[in-house]
Design a protein around this nucleic acid. Structure first.
Lengths: 191, 191
DNA sequence: ACCTGAACACCGTTCAAGT
DNA sequence: ACCTGAACACCGTTCAAGT
């Protein structure tokens, strides 16, 4: 498949994500990406430092697909919307998604996503000192669930069962949240 | 390092876990395992079908280290004990642990662990139809947290902060559980 | 500036051969 | 029965060379 021979970092990362979607994480090799771009593997090293950097970039791109919800929504609907967006990204990119749980969430995109959740939690009335802790717990739950779902841990269960699982997890969060914050759960934000 | 040249499956898997502990998942190669056993890589194929089978076996072995808690304890103390055991296994084997979230929980050891949690949930008064769902949610939370912890997602946080996070997660479960089951939360088991 | 050719060390895996 | 030698296809990566 001949293609343009002029490539850039964005093209390399986008193609990397495509390759992983099509042939899995084991199939995501420098050679496979290069082939798809109509280029030799060595050409990629001008745009990514090495394979690890390629993986980081691909994960970053996946993270970028998780768009924040409408700011007008109530805090609980916003959290649900974020959860759905995460699950959707996981289903579109099942091979790459589990890497999200295995890399430090220190990239700009990761930080931006976290700040969005912080804002929603403040809106939910979570007191400031508890905000980062609650974010870590909730993101762990949602990422862990979505990763389990797409990597086959819940292999024997239908989509319908898993949707109900996810709804139950949301209910558990809603009901349990007041117990883990300073004592409040549903007053308006204080700033 | 010369060693006995008679090996069996158990020795291969135990050595595989050791190698991963020492040099990481990328360093867990057939050759590294063979070297440590004082044998050529090809000799391993008599005892494991291939590398994937080796990984499965190593994960299975890690799972076997998570010993069930004392049956005399209350249900909540038992759940906490299981959570602690999972975190301990994760810290002993940080390279291998995240694989637990990526493989179908269909092995005998996985099934046995799950049945133990079922028993505790019944003791907690969770109605029978909700038991598997609650188990999936709780195991996702605990596995997801432990995996995040050891794979560097919470890299910037101290052990003390993460211990408090874990305690908060347990509190969230305790407080939220009644909302996700048929309506009960703390009566004794029915069988 | 950007891509290529050739080369290196290292993978997983096979198969016939040794003992 | 169990391990070894030799071989194959495939990795990631480097470096000097091309345009």
């Amino acid at each position: 498949v001949p293609r343009p021979r002029q490539i850039d970092r964005d093209a390399v990362l986008a193609t990397g994500l495509e390759v992983a979607d099509d042939v899995g994480l084991d199939g995501l090799t420098m050679q496979a990406v290069a082939d798809r771009l109509g280029v030799t593997p060595m050409a990629l090293y001008r745009h990514v430092a090495n394979k690890s950097d390629l993986l980081d970039g691909v994960v970053e791109r996946l993270l970028g697909e998780i768009v924040p919800p409408d700011d007008e929504l109530g805090w609980d609907d916003q959290l649900i919307a974020i959860g759905r967006a995460v699950r959707g990204a996981a289903r579109r990119h099942p091979a790459v998604f589990p890497l999200l749980l295995q890399r430090p969430a220190t990239t700009p995109t990761a930080k931006r996503a976290r700040e969005r959740v912080y804002a929603v939690l403040r809106k939910a009335g979570v007191p400031e000192p508890s905000v980062p802790r609650v974010e870590r717990i909730l993101s762990t739950m949602v990422l862990g669930f979505a990763a389990s779902e797409v990597s086959g841990r819940f292999h024997s269960h239908s989509r319908k069962v898993l949707d109900a699982d996810f709804d139950a997890m949301i209910e558990l969060i809603r009901a349990g949240l007041p117990a883990v914050v300073g004592g409040a759960g549903d007053r308006q934000a204080a700033g």
